[in-house]
Simulated assay, not measured.
Amino acid sequence: MIANLLRSVIKGFNVKKRIHIERSNERCLPQPSLLSNYYIYKIYGTYFAIWLLILVNMYSQRLRRVICGLFFKKREKRRVLHLYNETLRRRVGYYRFMKKKVQKLVRQRRLQDNLNVLVVLRLRFPRAFRFLHLLPGARRKCLICKEVEPLCRSRFEQCRNELCHFSYCPECWEDSGNKCLACATLDADTSSGLDSSDEDDD
């Protein structure tokens, strides 16, 4: 009897409960909607404008000279004349420097033209390897200014001497008097050597 009494008292404390609570923040979330095409075009248009400004930046910088030339015409004319004369002066000075350098190398027997296999094949067999001029490595360079021969409408002049393979651009060829500086230097040295030997014999 006492056992049943204790069992009934303790049974009241033996309680099992399950609590199931669900919480959601759905009310706090914004309601998403599809972005309109206007904003998409606006974003990509901004990126396109930035890239376009980067590409045309050098051309837009030139507009400053045009704008200044509209307001200060005399100053613009003086600036153009100064640049023209300065360019001519530098060109003449550079040509004189390169001419003396070429003459010095010729007298020292150190004047060489770095010809690769493609250029040699093109010069020795012009008909068979004519297509090599399409390759940048097979094009000739000017002896004076080191300008590379253009791909189309090449007006490079080559020395008439069969033993000489130096080439000149039209501007340098005209400045040199339509003659090869290497051959002219050799001829001048040879003639001066012959004259000196004749004087010694006399």
Rank of each mutant, 00 (worst) to 15 (best):
F48M: 13
T190L: 02
G137M: 04
V80I: 15
S196G: 01
R27M: 14
L111V: 04
C169K: 08
A184E: 12
V15A: 04
L132R: 04
R18C: 07
P136F: 03
R75C: 13
K74C: 14
S192V: 03
Q112L: 15
K11D: 08
L132C: 02
P126G: 02
R96M: 12
M58N: 02
K141D: 03
D189Y: 06
I2Y: 09
P150C: 02
L52G: 06
Y95K: 06
C183Q: 03
R124C: 06
H82G: 00
P170A: 12
K74Q: 14
R64S: 06
N37M: 12
K11N: 10
S191Q: 09
V66S: 08
N116S: 10
T87W: 10
K77A: 15
L6E: 11
G177S: 10
K77Q: 15
G177K: 11
L53P: 05
Q158R: 00
D195M: 13
H133I: 13
Y59W: 07
V102T: 06
A138C: 02
V80A: 03
Y94P: 00
V102P: 00
L63E: 00
S8C: 12
K73W: 07
P150I: 02
G93W: 01
P126W: 10
D198N: 09
I54H: 08
R89V: 02
F72E: 07
N85S: 12
N85M: 10
L163S: 09
F71L: 03
V102F: 05
E157V: 10
R139E: 04
L81V: 13
L134E: 09
W173D: 01
A49C: 13
D113A: 04
M1A: 15
L194N: 09
F125L: 05
T87L: 10
C183E: 04
F125R: 07
L163Y: 05
K11A: 10
S33G: 01
K146M: 07
M98K: 14
V148K: 05
V117N: 05
N178C: 10
L123P: 01
F97E: 09
D195Y: 07
R153E: 04
C180E: 05
Q112V: 15
I54K: 14
S167D: 12
L81T: 12
R90D: 09
P150A: 02
P150Q: 03
R109P: 00
N114H: 09
N14K: 06
L123M: 09
S33W: 05
N114D: 12
R130K: 08
K101P: 00
K141A: 01
R75V: 14
G177T: 09
N85P: 01
